[in-house]
């Protein structure tokens, strides 16, 4: 049987006698998975990542990467991991190309191999033309891509991304998503922490939510979404929202509720997934032409708020 890509057991981190960052955190990630580790600020996500990547010492617990124990086989574990941290942490005085090439060197690649690998990732991330620029002079989005390029240069089997798209504009974020999807499809296991929950819904297949140093949810994405019954949709209508459309159904069902927002927008709240069709039929019966339907709240966001008691 294949070992999991990452196995974390009983991870505990105490910073000071009274500051417990992680409490008995355990989870497992299958090889090839796209795993989201979510949580509010200060929940323990970065500490967890720091421990896995050898940047933070742990108080207790065990970490295994592809069957290799972090303590016993630290070098092998490091060889298999690529990490994109939350904050920019490259040397601002170095050229972009040198940042990536040196990282390849630290992974034991010869100068020629390092040059080839860094050229490939810089081209892939559209940074090749910036290779001679000082890294401090790059834009925010370029800096994010530079950190991703650096993390990919050792061809990691486990890629850890701590808020990789923070501060990136929409176009760059979409490009990054495409690249991450491609990497995941080619077999790279990915761990993602992010505050863009749309990103999670689009990319990930498994979600763990951490709050106050404890895992409060650890499920496949589909299972998690099925737990959320209530959803809200915004309906843009073509010929004006009439009072008739918002009247309760004759059979008195409370499975959905239609509310008028303005003359061209209605809101539908449903408490059972299969009731959206009924609600739309009712609008058609009332002679209302639907122009567009959008999900008002991101479903993951809703779940996240429910689970982290911040609602």
């Amino acid at each position: 049987m294949k070992p999991p890509a990452l196995k974390v057991e009983g991870l505990t981190k105490v910073y000071a006698p009274e500051t417990v960052a992680l409490q008995d955190v355990s989870f497992e990630i299958d090889e090839g998975s796209f795993f989201a580790l979510l949580g509010p600020n200060g929940a323990g996500k970065s500490t967890t990542i720091g421990i896995i990547t050898s940047l933070v010492t742990r108080t207790a617990g065990q970490v295994t990467v592809f069957g290799h124990d972090l303590d016993r086989d630290r070098t092998q574990v490091k060889e298999m991991i690529g990490v994109v941290p939350q904050e920019f942490n490259f040397n601002i005085f170095e050229k972009a190309g040198d940042v990536v090439r040196n990282q390849a060197g630290y992974f034991g690649l010869s100068r020629d191999e390092a040059r080839q690998r860094s050229t490939a990732v810089l081209k892939k991330l559209k940074l090749w033309y910036k290779r001679h620029s000082a890294s401090r002079s790059l834009s925010g989005g370029m800096k994010r891509r530079l950190m991703l390029a650096r993390a990919l240069v050792n061809h990691p089997r486990l890629l850890i991304l701590d808020e990789p798209s923070a501060g990136a504009d929409v176009e760059i974020r979409y490009q990054m998503w495409d690249l991450l999807k491609e990497l995941n499809e080619s077999g790279t296991t990915i761990i993602l922490t992010t505050h863009y929950l749309e990103e999670v819904e689009k990319l990930c297949d498994h979600v763990a939510i951490i709050d106050k140093g404890r895992i409060v949810e650890d499920s496949p994405l589909n299972t998690l979404l099925a737990k959320l019954r209530s959803q809200s949709f915004l309906i843009a209508v073509e010929n004006g929202a009439t009072p008739q459309a918002t009247r309760p159904l004759p059979n008195g069902t409370d499975a959905y509720k239609i509310t008028k927002i303005d003359n061209h927008t209605l809101e539908i709240n449903i408490t059972a997934v299969d009731m959206l069709g009924d609600a739309l039929n009712k609008l058609s019966a009332a002679g209302i032409k639907i122009k567009n339907i959008t999900n008002k709240t991101n479903r993951i966001e809703q779940l996240f708020l429910n689970l982290t008691t911040r609602q």
Binding site: T53, K78, P85, F90, Q103, Y106
Partner: peptide
């Protein structure tokens, strides 16, 4: 110290260099 200050020391700490 400059690498520590910029946190770019992490480049070395996450790599398998001894």
């Amino acid at each position: 110290f400059s690498l520590k200050f910029q946190k770019s020391i992490e480049e070395l700490l996450v790599a398998p260099i001894s």
